[in-house]
Design a protein around this nucleic acid. Structure first.
Lengths: 131, 131
DNA sequence: CTAGGTGCAAATTCTTTGCAGAATA
DNA sequence: TATTCTGCAAAGAATTTGCACCTAG
């Protein structure tokens, strides 16, 4: 990817993600794209999604159980603090950070919380010392 | 699954997960199991993992990028607040809940944080009203 | 004995890859 | 024009399923 090109395919995929108000799966993207580009190959979707991920324009999420979704980034450094509805997969930004305040606030607004997960990734002390 | 049986296969899978100090992939489990049960089929691992998930004895996680791991539950209601090392995949329990305190504490202990994610799932107001 | 579980092989599903032709810069 | 990208088809990888046999209860 020395010099990425701005193809029609990539433009359409990006615009669909921009207009979506929720994360989309590869297949949902595909179904949308073939409306305007009936000949597009699914492999083209995969390849472009990879490029958009590398360019840091979209984020990748595992929702429900195994399903992978992609969502456009509002900005390059956006926090991944949000709530996703299991039903419609809409993304709700979080008002505050600390979990409990947050859960109370969400529930006051009518969101029924089933589960929450804080996941922090990085390198632990031991592994860092090996490098 | 009206009346689940306690087969040798299931016992061994469970004991391997119990002894593991980190989440394991299907393949890691498989490689361990064939030591004591060389004839086991991978599909048996998949089927038993599904049963253990239904029985709420293990949890399923997506780590790194796409890899699925399984981890035995300490107890039925355990919080999923932990830190996983990208290197060794060891699980570190979190001392406190609110994110920022927590990140500072982790970093003071030498953990290099690359990313964090709080994910809350449930049903939003709109979807709840449809049901 | 008998439902539930297993191993094996084949079938699915999801994703990646090779390649010749098309399109962008 | 020179890369890069695309569509197509085929290959791979991961997971699921059908089925005859096995086994725990």
């Amino acid at each position: 990817m020395t010099n990425a090109r701005n193809t029609k395919q990539k433009q359409i995929i990006l615009s669909i993600l921009k207009e979506a108000d929720r994360p989309m799966s590869i297949n949902e993207i595909y179904v949308q794209v073939i409306i305007s580009l009936p000949k597009i190959a699914k492999s083209t979707i995969y390849r472009n999604i990879d490029i958009l991920l590398e360019q840091n324009l979209i984020d990748k999420y595992h929702l429900n159980d195994n399903e992978i979704f992609y969502r456009i980034k509002e900005n390059r450094n956006e926090h991944k603090h949000f709530v996703i509805c299991d039903g419609c997969k809409k993304v709700f930004d979080l008002p505050t950070c600390p979990i409990h305040d947050l859960e109370n606030a969400m529930e006051e607004e009518g969101f029924i919380i089933k589960d929450h997960q804080i996941q922090i990734s990085g390198i632990c002390k031991t592994c860092a010392q090996k490098q």
